[in-house]
Design a protein around this nucleic acid. Sequence first.
DNA 1: CAGGCATGTGATACTCGGTATCACTTATGC
DNA 2: GCATAAGTGATACCGAGTATCACATGCCTG
Lengths: 145, 145
Amino acid sequence: MTERGPTVAERLRAAGSRVTGQRLAVADALASARRPQSAEELWHRLRARHPGIGRATVFRTLEALVAADVARRFEPEGHASTYVACRPGHHHHLVCTDCGSVAEIGEAYVSPLAERVARDTGFVVDDARIDFYGRCAGCAVNPPA
Amino acid sequence: MTERGPTVAERLRAAGSRVTGQRLAVADALASARRPQSAEELWHRLRARHPGIGRATVFRTLEALVAADVARRFEPEGHASTYVACRPGHHHHLVCTDCGSVAEIGEAYVSPLAERVARDTGFVVDDARIDFYGRCAGCAVNPPA
DNA sequence: CAGGCATGTGATACTCGGTATCACTTATGC
DNA sequence: GCATAAGTGATACCGAGTATCACATGCCTG
């Protein structure tokens, strides 16, 4: 179904990080979540299966996962960063303000915009962070409550 | 030169907020800054001219200015929000990672992308947050150090 | 141009996300 | 297997942002 690409362990190793039980556990918890998770949320969920896991470890691990392109940091309006699991490669988000789900759009959508900006302004684009807020196809058709 | 539009006071009133000395002072400090400012930075700068101004006031005022479309909150990689003064209307940012300057790009650049996303995915876009990171025209030609 | 009140302000204490430190453990290369 | 550099957990800490509350002030109303 979902084309897999390199495993989490492989991606960690490729980033020069060690593969530990905690890191796999966090990656797993993140991958099995259907919404973006904050570090605090993940910590609480993880303690069910991994009673000893430390709060600081979750924060550090998320950092490592982002560096390994296993997770992506997502900056919501509020204060706390949240994280979504992702396949390798850069991508951007469609955030549904009704159901909280987050979908991804690929680089292909963004390149034309980046090129146009570069052409018009002379700005050299290295990276982009693009988030759309609105309603996903489901919620748009069938609004909750 | 820069087309002005409604004054800060007018925009505050239009948003249902009162016009106070502190709010004008914060708006002014923000408008005269050449880089995005954090609440803390603004507070320190402001205390030179407005010795009595409170820290909490600066935070609350920035909130009011954002609501009145006088400032725009900008989410950098790190932790603290920063703010840029802006003319009314939504816009997005070009962040120069060399000199720290922030330029704006207008809605016109973004609409085609939003439309394409909507057409392809069924996602109804209400709002967008788009930040490009790279080097501004000046730094691209003439890199510092 | 008073007078009143909702709104805003300043000080303080607090919450909470995230980080530094440090003694201990463990993945990994030999 | 063993050494060791990287990672972990506990704790203390930091810094951004917020709640609270007594006091001040913009703004409308008469």
